[in-house]
Design a protein around this nucleic acid. Structure first.
Lengths: 332, 332
DNA sequence: CTGAAAGCGCTTACAG
DNA sequence: CTGAAAGCGCTTACAG
């Protein structure tokens, strides 16, 4: 029922091979012939069949995107960059939303079933990563800097990001600064912790440094830690949080315990998502170049299709400190 | 290089037809034979080829999702429902993010290129819809109630949603209530305006009713209207906004003009996205069942694949009033 | 510069 | 219950 390359060939009076050449813009077709084919395509409203191409070429022109959720605007913003660049380049993106782990099996099943040319993955577990790498040749980690450096990745310079906020906080006179971070096997998280340690030590504050680990990385997790912090009567004057969502939750909890932000305590986040600008006061945060991370991820993986990397590569983007109203000079 | 159904057939000592039957769980294969095939599949680690299946069956097992952006959590939350249910059912979703119109052409091109079994669309223009309907048989509008009722859709009961907030505002003593809405050719938006008119009239407030139209539906658009409202010295005591993003922008502008929310003016939104809970004070809003809308959309479109609807259908879900801190009794 | 033909990996009547 | 074979709509050496 649908019009095929054969119909076009007949209409144009050429062979299907020629039609194929014209459609794929391959060189070496006489202008006149090309014109005839194009007219036929036009006339018959030929639409090319993706499945047939995929079967014949062995490439699906589909890239998978695995992410934990879309609630966190960080993922959503990176995803937008990915979709944008994918559209520019005419590749399709299939999103595998893991729903914070609840959909892992289904995600794997789909991966298996649908042969994708490559996969972009954000914050997947080490375990899942190794399964995925068995299934797909080209995998790029987006936003994660994996421990053993065996997978190509694209990340923000986390060390210098933390350094930026830390300098900001130190310059405001803070000394009792805590770091609130999720636990993770990823190097990017470890880098942040390392940077925190480094800055505290450099400032001669080694003995007051304290890392508080959270269970997850959602608003609720930050909130829970805020309540705990109040309950335990901790006395930091500033808390640096490794993502905006948790920072927002933390602030919520502190506020409802009667703390004034930033008068009583300064809070800074990480990611620089758009929500950081709408909370009150606006959140001081380290902005990751999210959209660019997404577009670069597509560019990178498509380069890999052309010429497989001999060795895993790591692309590092620069963060930017975004000063809001949640950090202020320490009250004497 | 990859293992095919032929390899499995040889290994199991049966024909490819039989292997196909087993893989697709078709009835009428002797248990013993089935077992042999399954062993072979296991042993050879056979993975089925999506493109070949798609070509042979004429169905791609892919559903397209067209949305304006992912910044607005409304779309993100509906999308999560869609991804969730799609994973449950083993279908793939290709997201076509239109980037608020900037990617329209690319979106259409991809649609064309990749034969999808169906398409779910959110807030696409009338013009785009008609183009899309030429390309794809099964289209479902998600969140939009299209004017001429020719397309199957799944929407919230917008009329009763507005009625809920209006009753809430009226019960708080407000009379000078404005509606802030985007312009739209969609029936759902018109329904909201209609509901507003209806409620004002019912309350005997016909002559003070006022609809303020915005250019877009982003935070910035709400902000702009807030500034304009202050500049023009309007005197409503409550403003009902047709989406959370604009409401947040509006509140931001009002606050920075020195207005107290809700003391000086009450503001209510629509959608009930998660961000409505993190702004300060939490936003009163009409919550749409976003996640459910997404899951239902997948169910609906997959039903349509089975048995094409003789006539377009409309599925209506119920909204819920979510009272926050941005609405209060009028000050006398 | 162009065409005939094999092949990509499945499904599905049809026959037995 | 099982198999032989055609067909899905392309691409791509190979030949001319």
């Amino acid at each position: 029922m649908s019009v095929t390359i054969y119909d076009v060939a007949k209409e144009a009076g050429v062979s299907v091979a020629t039609v194929s050449r014209v459609i794929n813009q391959q060189p070496g077709v006489k202008t006149h012939t090309k014109q005839r084919v194009m007219n036929a395509v036009e006339k018959l409203k030929y639409q090319y069949n993706h499945a047939a191409v995929a079967l014949a070429t062995g490439k699906s022109n589909v890239i998978g995107l695995m992410l934990p959720n879309l609630q966190n605007p960080f993922y959503a913003e990176v995803a937008e960059g990915i979709y944008q660049e994918a559209m520019n380049r005419g590749v399709n993106v299939i999103t595998l939303n893991l729903m914070d782990g609840k959909n892992m099996d289904a995600g794997l099943r789909l991966l298996n079933q649908f042969s994708m040319d490559g996969l972009l993955a954000m914050d997947i577990s080490k375990d899942l990563l190794s399964k995925v790498e068995n299934l797909i040749e080209h995998v790029v980690l987006v936003g994660n800097d994996y421990l053993d450096g065996r997978t190509t990745c694209i990340v923000t310079d986390n060390f210098s990001g933390i350094q930026m906020v830390m300098r900001h906080l130190l310059s405001l006179g803070h000394t009792r600064i805590a770091l609130l971070s999720e636990k993770s096997e990823y190097n990017d998280v470890k880098d942040r912790i390392r940077a925190y340690y480094h800055c505290m030590e450099e400032a001669g504050l080694s003995e007051v440094r304290q890392v508080i680990y959270t269970d997850g990385s959602l608003i609720e997790d930050g909130e829970k830690e805020g309540e705990k912090w109040v309950r335990q009567g901790l006395d930091h004057t500033a808390i640096l949080v490794t993502n905006d969502m948790m920072a927002i939750g933390l602030i919520k909890a502190l506020k409802s315990a009667g703390k004034k932000i930033p008068e009583d305590i300064s809070v800074a986040g990480f990611d620089g998502t758009w929500v950081s600008a709408i909370v009150d006061p606006p959140l001081t945060s380290v902005a990751q170049p999210k959209f660019e991370m997404g577009t670069s991820a597509i560019s990178l993986i498509m380069e890999m299709f052309q010429s497989p990397l001999s060795t895993p590569r790591k692309i590092v983007l620069s963060p930017r400190l975004q000063i809001g109203g949640t950090t202020a000079a320490i009250q004497s």
